[in-house]
Computed example of a mutant assay.
Amino acid sequence: MEQNQNREIEILKEQMENLKNNVFAQLDELRAMMTASLPNKPAEEKRRSVHVIHDMHPDKRLSEQMAELCCKTEEKGVHGLVTYFGVYNSSGRQSNWIRNNVSADDLLSLIESGVAGKVLACIGNANRLGMLLEILRGPKTVAELVERCGFGSTGQVYHHMKPLLAADIIAEDEQQKGVYVIQPHKVQGIIMLLAGISDMVDETYTQGTWEINEEN
């Protein structure tokens, strides 16, 4: 009787071992299938000086473009590259823009040259920003700006319009005298500046490697 029980236990152990091996084999097969369905490259790969980021965005095209920017940054020997595009439509007026592989070093040089400071000083005023907002939403007369922006007089509007006109950010509509519009070629700058401010206050869309690289 005891021998039969021992034999049954041995058979049960063998069955358990076989079951375990079958489960592990199925798990390995499933893991291989999942790996094959994923991109060949890891989420991040370290090159000589740049970490190449993969699959950063749900849109495969944008993720591939990000990886390409990382690679080109190293190839060109610059600190970074920027690609951006957008569209803005309001009151039947539309601006579209695309810029590709813009050197971050060239952008930083705008600070050294003083251009960035002058532009920010021109628009970096709550009253002027309020005017830009209203004109971006649609062409406005001086009287409309007085009403919508809370100015006390047309003189105040003209005072704040002066630097915006001088910087060619706004202009009088050629077809409607006394009506002011944003210059079409300046729309993207305003929208992208606001996009930059948005990224300063919300880092949700940023990934990176921030440890110090002692080799560089």
Rank of each mutant, 00 (worst) to 15 (best):
E44S: 10
H54P: 01
Y205N: 12
A195P: 01
E8I: 05
C149V: 04
L108E: 08
N4D: 11
A171R: 15
T209G: 07
R93H: 11
I135S: 06
I182N: 02
G189I: 02
L27N: 04
E44G: 04
A195R: 15
Q15T: 06
G130E: 06
D168R: 15
E10C: 00
I9Q: 12
M34G: 00
K140T: 02
I111Y: 15
E74D: 11
L129C: 12
V52A: 07
R61I: 02
L164W: 09
T141Y: 03
A121Y: 03
C122S: 09
S113K: 04
Y158K: 14
S49L: 09
A32E: 14
G152I: 00
D173C: 14
K60P: 03
A43Y: 05
L81V: 02
G138W: 05
L164E: 11
Q183R: 15
S153K: 13
V78Q: 04
Q5G: 02
I98A: 09
I182D: 02
L120A: 10
V87Y: 03
D168E: 15
K46R: 14
Q65A: 08
R99S: 14
Q65C: 01
A121P: 00
D202T: 11
W210I: 13
A25M: 03
R7D: 13
D199S: 12
E14D: 13
